[in-house]
Design a protein around this nucleic acid. Structure first.
Length: 424
RNA sequence: GGAGAGAUGGGUGAGUGGCUGAAACCAACAGUUUGCUAAACUGUCGUACUCGAAAGGGUACCGGGGGUUCGAAUCCCCCUCUCUCCGCCA
């Protein structure tokens, strides 16, 4: 969540960043927030002084009792009644103000970075890089949802039977190519300096709040009945929450982790006829990289993570482009996001396969993720993450782009992982 | 699932109503000594909010929430988690 101190420090900047995020009355909301904080402070001040008085009277009573002066103690006790009721009122007041403050902070998204383009939808995203050759396919080229049937490698009907729509079953070479990609991504990330972690794929609500899925996106996660647990929508949640309530040692920074997990998304409302095959699923596999840096290093780290993701796409020989998302298309918690899209040549569509974001201190503030600057001042860190990469659309693009009439060729870098060089 | 024990600062761990924001030890940090390292000695050593230019104050926090009391780490209630034994089991 946003930090009051930052808002006070440069209100205009925060407001304009929020406006980019399509918060219409950002200035009013921020003013209300500041007023609320002001009243919080005043109430606390008052409450603290009453408590102080109560504490010192209690101490007096204690001292008198020790001396055996019971009558004297009773005399002093008389003063307490009124102070206590006063203190109760103030503390209740303080509690409700704090709750309101927190709720307001939860409801506000991260403020967009100055360099984020203004805009309301994906139309307004800026293409900042385009790389790779778009293959020319024959007229007989098939979209991936037909290829998977032709070669019998992914079965949606089986998934339907077992679970429901959006839960495919990968078979034979289809399953193997998935596993190959996961291993390839994990190995590459390890080489690039990310430490591999394996986390739970269900999380509690504290974790959901920590990274900002709650309360904003509760409807997007699958909840587990009677357990107050959620299936993760991304490995970002468990990995970043490793560091919740942690004061990191300065020499351990930056922290870089990578993890593979299945991801679960309800995708409520986003289902439709235009979503076919692997383009959108309820369960999919993803390798995620997470980085935690000092504030001054986070934008350099963001660029570095993008460069890394680009290198994966190049190795897979997939044509891709890189977008700097406009404020309106960015996620709730992000200050700046780059999306990577691969071109899937048979459906003639750009498919988002990675989203790399800098959350600055927004998540860290919820997570209480900090470090001791110069061994003294405690400072919130910056968190970042990126998909590296999400599997289904990569699979879709590989299948479509590498198809011939008789077979589909496997990208060279994957062959040592798959053990075969073509699907036929 | 049944029975019992427990949750205290970076770690171990003391603390059953006021002198405890919390002993002691370890770790860490700074300094002294030393040819270097080590050892020894001295000091510092939780977090948040808040007042203050600063020095230094105030308030809260001993798993979480509520209660009793003038006063709670300490007593009571609820919840969560951990450990041990039994049962079951990949």
């Amino acid at each position: 969540m946003l930090r009051i101190a930052d808002i006070k420090n440069d209100k205009e900047k925060v407001v304009s960043g929020l406006e980019k995020k399509r918060i219409v009355n950002a200035a009013e909301q921020i003013d209300a927030l500041l007023a609320l904080d002001e009243s919080r402070r005043n109430t606390q001040l008052e409450s603290d002084s009453v408590l102080n008085e109560l504490n010192s009277i209690s101490k007096q009573i204690g001292a008198l009792m020790q001396k055996g002066d019971k009558a004297g103690a009773e005399k002093v006790k008389v003063q307490i009644g009124e102070l206590k009721s006063k203190s109760k009122v103030l503390q209740d007041q303080l509690k409700s103000i704090e709750a309101e403050l927190l709720q307001t902070l939860y409801s506000l998204p991260n403020s967009a970075h100055e360099k984020v383009p203004t805009g309301t939808s994906s139309e307004d995203n800026a293409v900042v890089l385009e790389k790779g050759k778009i293959p020319e396919l024959s007229d007989a080229a098939l979209p991936h949802w037909e290829l998977i049937e032709k070669y019998d490698i992914i079965d949606f009907n089986l998934g339907n039977k077992i679970s429901g729509a959006g839960f495919p079953v990968y078979k034979g070479k289809g399953a193997k190519i998935q596993r190959a990609l996961i291993n390839f991504f994990l190995d590459e990330a390890t080489k690039a300096g990310f430490e591999e972690v394996q986390t739970p794929i269900v999380v509690n609500s504290d974790s959901g709040y920590g990274t900002g899925q709650l309360p904003d996106k509760e409807g997007q996660m699958y909840g587990i009945v009677d357990s107050n647990l959620f299936l993760i929508p991304t490995a970002e949640v468990p990995i970043t929450n490793i560091y919740r309530d942690v004061i990191v040692k300065e020499e351990d920074l930056p922290i870089r982790n990578v993890g593979y997990t299945p991801c679960f998304r309800r995708e409520a409302g986003s289902w439709g006829a235009h979503v076919r095959g692997l383009n959108r699923l309820h369960q999919f596999d993803k390798v995620e990289i997470v980085q935690i840096t000092k504030p001054e290093d986070s934008y350099k780290a963001l660029e570095g993570m993008c460069t890394y993701v680009e290198s994966l796409l190049e190795k897979l020989e997939l044509p891709f482009r890189k977008l700097l998302l406009c404020g309106g298309d960015m996620g709730f918690t992000s200050a700046m996001t780059y999306d990577m899209e691969v071109y899937s040549a048979a459906q003639k569509k750009w498919l988002e396969v990675s989203s790399v974001s800098n959350f600055e201190a927004y998540q860290a503030n919820r997570l209480k993720l900090r470090y001791k600057e110069d061994g003294k001042k405690i400072t919130l860190l910056h968190t970042l993450n990126g998909s590296a990469l999400a599997l289904p659309r990569i699979v879709a693009a590989i299948l479509e782009n590498n198809q011939t009439d008789e077979y589909i060729s496997v990208p060279k870098v994957l062959q040592k992982y798959t053990g075969f060089d073509r699907i036929d």
